[in-house]
Design a protein around this nucleic acid. Sequence first.
DNA 1: GGATGTGAAAGTCTTCACAGCG
DNA 2: CGCTGTGAAGACTTTCACATCC
Lengths: 223, 223
Amino acid sequence: MSAPSYPEAILISERTIGRLAQYRRILTELVRDNLETVHSHQLALRCGGSAAQVRRDLMVIGAEGSPNKGYKCAKLLASLAEFLTQPGTQKVALVGIGNLGRALLSYSHKQQPGLLIVAAFDIAPDKTNKVIDGCRCFHIDTLESVIKEQNIKVAIIAVPGEAAQLVADRLAIAGVRGIVNFAPAPLHLPPSVFVENIDVTMSLEKVVYFAAKGTQSERNKSA
Amino acid sequence: MSAPSYPEAILISERTIGRLAQYRRILTELVRDNLETVHSHQLALRCGGSAAQVRRDLMVIGAEGSPNKGYKCAKLLASLAEFLTQPGTQKVALVGIGNLGRALLSYSHKQQPGLLIVAAFDIAPDKTNKVIDGCRCFHIDTLESVIKEQNIKVAIIAVPGEAAQLVADRLAIAGVRGIVNFAPAPLHLPPSVFVENIDVTMSLEKVVYFAAKGTQSERNKSA
DNA sequence: GGATGTGAAAGTCTTCACAGCG
DNA sequence: CGCTGTGAAGACTTTCACATCC
């Protein structure tokens, strides 16, 4: 009769996971600055949410803070790191070495946390078989073999909309389980593959609308 | 007693506006391909939503389709264009001419709809006083004067996180009413300024989590 | 028959408010 | 006291289901 391991029965919403990732980023800074403890309202201020929201989010990972002193930064950061997958642990592939792709590569190269792009693919021969920002670039024909060889489970799609579905299908078959999709087209994939869409044009149009029309108040959903 | 003009009393949610922008993009393609009519379930397939969702969204702009024939593409597109602000109408400023900024500039240059960046700013002298992808680049010192002169109401922030709040404050004072923020930091601004955050790192971490852990099904929120 | 338009139900997410504790 | 932890309420979104019309 060993102690039951974390049931993990309750499944956590996408929004919550996103905010937990933010909290981790903030806590990384706090720990770097040698802060001992932090209150929920302080975290709220730094991520643009409410204190109640922060407390509820931290509840789901079983974090515990003491009244009047708040949460211990180091301990909380450790809990978050254990709960979320450690950044840099997961290798990421990038498909599409255009302007956006190169911007992501330079991020990956400089940034300290997350975003460890280990392989990039493109269809244009002049972009392949070289190293950009420390990342090896391959021709798209080798996508399946490289993905399998390196056991890559996460990919970023930064190709034109017309090519996105085809790329996504190939990624899924090669074993990728999660995709960040910058193409402005929905990907139809089996539910075993998680897809996060980032549609810059749509976001811009939203902002244009609200800038011109009604004054919606600032909301921080950061997605 | 004139007929009451559209009350516009009901304010429309951010999510809905985002989807309406997607519908417009899809309809632009349909009209280009000379499609006469379209059904709600066809739109749903092409944007990754449900048919009921599409119909409800179109309800808010008072679109009308006929049973069995669906919606008239051209008419619906016109309604959407009238409702959303016409793309290209609003001039957009870009702050931060790094890799991401340049990727956005090249988009702006090539893409047909939306995204008309007319001025870019940076603090580095070697990036300013030139033209990149058809967009004039200025030193950040001239931000206020250029924004006011050109009457720009929408801006994109693509600077490092530490500088984001300062830039946002200056933009708001210069008269900007809407901001797309790529910096991973919340902007604290008066509610008269609409802010849309795009946090690429956070999205990536979400995907890493769901790729590794539980299999959440694909959801298309495209934000 | 097969689609739209829409009230109502169901579901999801956020905020409130307060007990309990240091 | 002020803050955490959390049930309960509230607000918002999506889906259902069906009357209605071509």
